[in-house]
């Protein structure tokens, strides 16, 4: 099966000599919901910039649905929709015009562009704002406007560069639902985000990029399985004056109604509950202390840091 996106040995060195990408390779399969994660300056936006032609690669190859961008970039672009990190529309144009005009750039007849503009503005809750100048919109509305614009030509591959940055929780959830809906309809989605719970909730596969290199490329499930330990917060019904006996578990009392317990790989939560139950302590709720993906993300990046000996050698 032809990959939706195939990147091989992609390199980018900027004019000032900064090596943003050191030869990364990964594939994204059709229909996937793929997370491209990494800290600031890791090379995510450079990668996306190359895919949409705003950044010129210095080496390697990129194919979108089998079309090499060096052979036929216009055809590859027809399959690609991009929602950038920064707002990149005219602040003085009306919402309807911004979206509808984009259709023209992709060769869509005016009537079809108008129909699709209405469709996507309605889906993204912007139809009432169609005659409003873009500068009058809230930050969340501007993000949705860019999503509507990117979808107008109904691309097979949609790339979203931090689409929910600065968006409130309620709106973020509704955007997640919308993205899951279009993914279910067959659109391949690549997402970059700093909200790792977002990546964990939405994405099936992941690539983590750091300092221009891919440090992990696997499924989210496989990655989470590599967690050697998880830290849980347990809320208790009983008021606790001191830490109970945790048996073989590492735990501590946080306050009179909550406990923090570390579960090592191989240990069972059932054993913990049995241990607490024996002491007449009932657990009313529990949660991870931190997002699991976040813990892995931090540890992977830490592994990729040069050691102090390496730093001295430099």
């Amino acid at each position: 099966m032809t990959a939706a996106l195939s990147i091989r040995d992609l390199q980018k060195t900027y004019d000032n000599g900064f090596e943003a990408l050191k030869g990364i390779s990964f594939d994204v399969q059709p229909g996937d919901f793929f997370a491209l994660l990494g800290p600031n300056g890791a090379g995510k936006s450079t990668t996306i910039g190359i895919l949409c032609s705003l950044v010129r690669k210095t080496g390697g190859s990129v194919s979108i649905f089998g079309i090499d961008i060096d052979d036929n970039f216009p055809a590859a672009k027809q399959m690609l929709g991009v929602v950038p990190q920064e707002f990149n529309f005219s602040q003085f144009e009306k919402v309807f015009d911004i979206v509808c005009t984009q259709g023209g750039f992709y060769g869509m007849p005016r009537k079809l562009a108008e129909e699709r503009t209405e469709k996507y503005l309605r889906k993204l809750g912007l139809w009432d704002k169609r005659s409003t100048q873009a500068r009058m919109l809230s930050g969340g509305m501007k993000r949705r406007l860019m999503i509507a614009r990117a979808l107008l030509h109904e691309p097979k591959l949609l790339i979203l560069d931090e689409p929910t940055a600065g968006v409130d929780i309620e709106l973020r959830r509704s955007m997640w639902e919308f993205l899951q809906e279009i993914n279910a309809q067959g659109t391949t989605i690549i997402l970059t985000t700093h909200y790792l719970e977002e990546a964990e909730s939405l994405c099936r596969n992941i690539a983590i990029i750091d300092k221009g290199d891919i440090v992990e490329n696997t499924s989210i499930k496989s990655l989470l399985k590599t967690l050697s330990r998880e830290v849980f917060i347990l809320d208790t019904r009983e008021t606790l004056e001191k830490a109970p006996d945790f048996g073989g578990f590492d735990g501590r009392l946080l306050d009179e109604h909550s406990l923090e317990v570390t579960i090592e790989k191989g240990q069972s939560l059932s054993d913990l509950f049995t241990q607490l139950s024996a002491q007449n302590i009932a657990v009313t709720s529990m949660r991870n202390r931190a997002n699991r993906l976040e813990e892995l993300f931090v540890s992977l990046l830490a592994e990729n840091q040069p050691s102090s000996a390496d730093k001295e050698a430099e």
């Binding site: 949409c52 705003l54 027809q78 990149n88 529309f89 005219s90 602040q91 005009t101 984009q102 992709y106």
Partner: peptide
Amino acid sequence: SAKFQRSVEELLVSP
């Protein structure tokens, strides 16, 4: 102005 507001990117990313 299109460069300044980055709206020129609408065109540059298109075919």
